[in-house]
Design a binder for these strands. Sequence first.
DNA 1: GAGCTATATCGAAGGTTGTCAATATCCCAT
DNA 2: ATGGGATATTGACAACCTTCGATATAGCTC
Lengths: 116, 116
Amino acid sequence: MSTQTLLPITDVTACCAPLTRETLPAQQADDLARSLKALADPTRLRLISIVAASAGEEACACDLTEPVGLSQPTVSHHLKILVEAGFFTRTQRGTWAYFRLVPGALDSVARLLVSA
Amino acid sequence: MSTQTLLPITDVTACCAPLTRETLPAQQADDLARSLKALADPTRLRLISIVAASAGEEACACDLTEPVGLSQPTVSHHLKILVEAGFFTRTQRGTWAYFRLVPGALDSVARLLVSA
DNA sequence: GAGCTATATCGAAGGTTGTCAATATCCCAT
DNA sequence: ATGGGATATTGACAACCTTCGATATAGCTC
């Protein structure tokens, strides 16, 4: 993960043919790789899965630390990466931070991987 | 990328519900993350794309170095990672090594990412 | 066999990532 | 205001990744 700002997924997938259709330009390869890097961590996959399975498809940060078994700063770090990559939205309500899946974000990445 | 042996994709995806269906067990999160890590590199995405777009969906290693603009050892390294992750097969014909996409491998990963 | 070519492996440098403890920030309640 | 709880940021460290040049291996051709 670089320090560069991540494109929201919807931008990454706005324009392009699927991966297997024609040779991917370097710029688009970079963008897609950045999105995939955000997903390519077991803790982040579990966070996505937990949020998606939560009531209202929304989860409080306070309920995410314990299930993944890592420290609070580490979980906060992973959540930030998922937000910056465009997979999560963050809503502050009082002291609590709530996270939701961005609708269609995972599907956009998936669509780029398939041929048909 | 760890030194640990990668599961072929078909094993990763053999058993499990989509990512967003229920909380992903740690073991499956690890496996899927390993597959995604193999994809999460711009050079490897371009290699996949070039091979997929080649005549017969097959490409010789000798034709892959120049388009990605990296050294021969580096390209060889990326090809190895894609083979070990189960996305490519490698066939030796004389001095040349030919690479093909494993049918369905990308689709298996994509299917785990979508909800529907 | 000798030499050439294609590919893989080795070893090292530099950058990136995941993790934590410590600390800062923000918001609510008293 | 003050205190307490929730979350984010900082700084540090170890592990890992990408890349290369140098070298090894394997197969073809003469």
